[in-house]
Amino acid sequence: MKGELRGVAISRGGIRINHLLFADDSVIFGRVSIAELKRIQGLLDIYGKALGKCLNEKKITIFLSSNTHWGVRTQIQQGAGVAICGSYEKYLRLPAVVGRSRYYTFRSLKERVWAKVNSWKNNFLSQAGKEILLKAVVQVIPTYSMSVFRLPIRLCKDISSVMSRFWWVHMKNDKRIQWRRELMQAKIGFGPSMIWRSLWYAISLIKEGVA
């Protein structure tokens, strides 16, 4: 059976993968042909007999390429005897297929952050309350995806922008806090106190944080 299952190539000229195992799930890759299907079924039968187990067809689905001819699709479905799913967009809440534009693939993260932040827009949140919500709720939203994928810089900036607007907008009149611009442009002056000198030296760090 060696070499009979070609699988899929990770990249052009790269190594090929014919299966992936994660937790209690198995993903098998193959060409869209009856011959390939029979080989995979044969391997699964050998595996089941060796372990004394049988496959649960209700938990098996087949995902075919979008350019698969409808006649071949029908043959595969009849030969396999299991359901064929029309789309395979998510697996464990993560995108199973990432297209050329990673930004549009993960844009839902920005939308979730925006929806969450807008649901908190009320007159009862203090600065401390907003800080807790941003750190404990909003920053957790992209963490799961970031543990697997490298998010586009553009998307990270958009998410940071949404969080910054929520942090700096005043609750009552939806206008930016007036002292922010004055602070950024302030001079150290003549004979400053120790407190003002310490604040003035930290303005550069504040500019980086709110940029």
Rank of each mutant, 00 (worst) to 15 (best):
V98F: 01
V98E: 02
R100E: 08
S101L: 08
S101C: 12
S101H: 06
R102M: 06
R102G: 07
Y103H: 11
Y103E: 11
Y103D: 12
Y103M: 06
Y104W: 06
Y104R: 15
T105W: 00
R107W: 07
R107N: 11
L109E: 10
K110F: 10
K110D: 13
R112N: 13
R112C: 08
R112F: 12
V113N: 11
V113R: 05
W114E: 15
K116S: 13
K116V: 10
V117F: 04
V117L: 15
S119P: 08
S119A: 09
K121I: 15
N123C: 08
N123G: 10
F124P: 07
L125G: 03
L125F: 12
S126M: 06
S126G: 07
S126V: 07
Q127A: 15
Q127L: 15
Q127S: 14
A128F: 06
A128E: 11
G129W: 07
K130D: 02
K130R: 14
I132R: 10
L133P: 01
L133V: 05
L134Y: 08
L134P: 02
K135I: 03
K135E: 05
K135F: 02
K135T: 12
A136G: 00
V138S: 05
V138E: 03
I141E: 03
I141M: 06
I141Y: 07
P142C: 05
T143F: 05
T143Y: 06
T143M: 12
T143C: 05
Y144S: 00
S145R: 01
M146P: 01
M146T: 01
M146A: 10
S147F: 01
V148A: 00
V148T: 00
F149Q: 00
F149G: 00
F149R: 02
F149Y: 06
L151V: 03
P152C: 00
P152R: 02
P152Q: 04
P152F: 01
I153V: 05
I153H: 06
R154H: 07
R154A: 13
R154W: 01
L155Y: 02
C156D: 04
C156H: 03
C156L: 08
K157H: 13
D158N: 14
I159E: 08
I159D: 09
S160T: 07
S160G: 09
S161G: 14
S161V: 14
V162Y: 13
V162I: 15
M163S: 15
M163L: 10
M163W: 07
M163P: 09
S164C: 13
S164E: 07
W167L: 11
V169I: 10
V169C: 11
V169Y: 08
M171H: 12
M171N: 15
N173L: 03
N173E: 00
N173K: 03
N173C: 02
N173W: 00
D174L: 04
D174K: 10
D174C: 07
D174M: 05
K175Q: 06
R176N: 05
R176Q: 10
R176D: 11
I177G: 01
Q178Y: 03
Q178N: 10
Q178A: 13
Q178H: 03
W179G: 02
R180H: 05
R180F: 09
R180M: 11
R181P: 05
R181V: 08
R181F: 09
E182F: 04
E182M: 08
E182H: 10
E182G: 13
E182K: 11
Q185A: 13
Q185R: 12
A186C: 13
K187V: 12
K187H: 10
I188V: 14
G189A: 05
G189L: 04
G189F: 05
F190P: 03
G191E: 14
P192S: 02
